[in-house]
Structures are given as C-alpha cells and as structure tokens.
Simulated assay, not measured.
Amino acid sequence: MKKVLFASTALIATGSVAAAEVSFSGYGRFGIGYVEDRSIITTTTTTSGAINVNNPETDDAILVSRFRLNIDANVETDGGVEFSGRVRLQADEDSGTGEANSAGLNGARFSVIYGGLRVDAGNVAGAFDNLANYYGNEVGLELFAGQYSGVNYNFLAYSSTGSGANAVFFQYAVGDFAFGASYDQATIFTGGGNTTDADRWDVSATYTFNNITAAVAYGQTDAIGSGSDPSLTVLTLGGEWGDFGGTLFVADDATEVTATDGTAWGLSASYNLGAATTLLFTYGDGNADADLQQVAIGAIYDLGGGASLRGGLGVNDCDVCSDSTMVADFGAQFNF
C-alpha cells in the first residue's frame, strides 16, 4: 500500500530526538451483492411490553460498498523503539436493506515495537485474529466465505467500526518462530444493574519451514459464576508451491452450547492462472447442528495500479437450516 506523508516533525524531549509521521492507507470497493431470500430482522414492542421479532424479506440483490481509511501516526526514538497509533474510518452499506451507512471512526490501537517484539493496547486483534492462515483464501468482493465458517467461539478481534475490547496483545518473533498472546479484561452487563467478569485470553505459536507455515492457538473465556468456560483450539497449515497456494484448518470449538459445540474444519486454495487472473476456493464446516457450512469459488482479475475486479459464488447451509442459501457478488476494489 502507498503511504502518503501528512507531516514530518522532530520531537525533542530530555535531549532525545524522534522522527514522527502521519500516513494514510486503505481501500475502496463497490459492486453488486446477492443473497438468496435476503431479509432483515426487526423488532416491535406491543402495548403489553412483549417483543415481536419480524424477519421481512428485502431485495436479494443490492449495491454493496465499503470505504476504509487507516490513519497511522508513528514515531521512532533514537534507540530504535517505534511508538504508533491507529484509528480507522470506515463506511459500509446496510447489508439488510442496501442503504448507505455513514462513516465513523473506530477505537484507537496503540503499539510499541522493538526488534521482534510488538505490544498492542486498546482496540487490538488477539492471537486468533492474528494467527497465520486462520482466514485462508476468503472468497468474494465482500469476503463472504471462509474456511473458518464452522467456528462459533467469540474470540478477541479488531473492530473496524466499533470501539473494540480495550485489551492487550503481545507478539515476539525470532527466526522462524513467532509467539503471541492476548488478554481482555471483559465485563458483561447481565441486567438489573448487575455485571459479571468474562475475561478472555489466548496464546499462539507459529513456525515457518521452507514454504510451509504451521500455527496453533488456544483461547478461553473465564466466565465467572456461569459454570462454563468456553474455549477454542485451532491448528492451521499453509503453503505456496509456484502458482498454487493452499491452507488447511481444524478447530476444537468448545462453546459448551449443544447446538454449536464440536469440531470445525476447512480448507482453501488459490491458483494463479496467469494473465493477471487468480482463482480461489474455500470450504468450511463443523459437526454441530448449527455450524455454518460454506462452499465457494471466486476469482480476482488484477487491473494494475492497485485496482482489481473481484467476485465469487457460494452456498451456505447447516443441519438445522430449512434450506441452503446461495450467495454471490461482483465488483471492483482499489487499494491506496
């Protein structure tokens, strides 16, 4: 991505000097998105106080779009320690109605980087969100399908449009090894002015040998007083062999909820056809009744200069779903 220099100044404090800059990066995308029997969930409250849930259908095909602008501020000390902060401005369409949403800034992420050590604080991505090959080769302009579709555990993730969890992430890389961990001191409101602690933590390890990367992560939510501590264990493998790239994914998704507790698995692949065209495939599933199964194919055509045409076609299904759902999209993306 190109970085546009906004300002460059010298910061002087207690005799040390640091070079600072603010840069912008991001992307825009727009096109047509199709979801079979698309609907939007609405609620109404009756005079007796009862809540009725409505699920009216809307247009299957809508205009989809996203504009994302990352704003990064960086400063590096004389000793080589980098301090940085990021906020993100993002605008998406309403996926239910197709109407436009306003752009807004998310929560800030702060980082300290020195050599192979990185520490993030604030709106951070945890060990799963940062895990090599967790997402694999996602399909579609909107990345609507991925090999992880059978996972239901709620892990710590970076929020592009919200304030985030206000947590801490640590990563250390040395040679072919990398280790990561995160901690989120979460508090959940249970109603009636009551709260409960639901701290989340996770750890990961990654090893790269030749053209293959293997990664494993474990995370748990310590829900005090609930009698259950849901957890997630994930193993990924990924590699590249010339024009072909592929990933494998397997997870123990211990949500401790009958409908979603079980094993999840998936795989994805990419193949460079030449002539600026890349083909994509992804499959994800799980053995629990409510686990989402996704199968999708897609393609990317590189127009040069950071612009591309993208699209995909897939099917969503699950054991307790009344029918499978076809999903597709096509449009343009430009990176800056």
Rank of each mutant, 00 (worst) to 15 (best):
I297C: 00
G107D: 07
S163F: 04
G312H: 07
S25M: 07
G298F: 02
L237V: 11
G26P: 05
Q294L: 09
V315T: 15
T190N: 12
V315A: 01
G298P: 02
I12E: 13
T46L: 11
A167V: 01
Y135K: 15
F169T: 12
T161L: 13
L248E: 08
S84T: 07
S163G: 14
L237Q: 07
G192S: 08
A127R: 05
Q293W: 01
G162D: 15
A223R: 06
G305N: 13
G115Q: 08
Q220S: 11
Q220V: 13
G26K: 00
S160K: 05
P230D: 12
N106K: 08
T42Y: 11
G116M: 10
G31R: 07
N70V: 08
N272T: 07
A251C: 06
Y114S: 15
Y114R: 11
D319Q: 12
I212S: 05
P230R: 01
T42M: 09
N272M: 08
G225C: 07
V22E: 10
R88Q: 14
G150S: 09
D291I: 00
D302L: 10
S322R: 01
G245A: 15
S102G: 11
S25I: 01
G140W: 00
L309F: 13
V81E: 00
L237H: 08
S39H: 12
T233C: 02
N137P: 00
G311E: 05
L273R: 03
A215G: 09
A91N: 03
V168N: 03
V174S: 14
V17Q: 12
F336I: 04
S270Y: 04
V168C: 03
N70H: 13
R88E: 12
A145R: 03
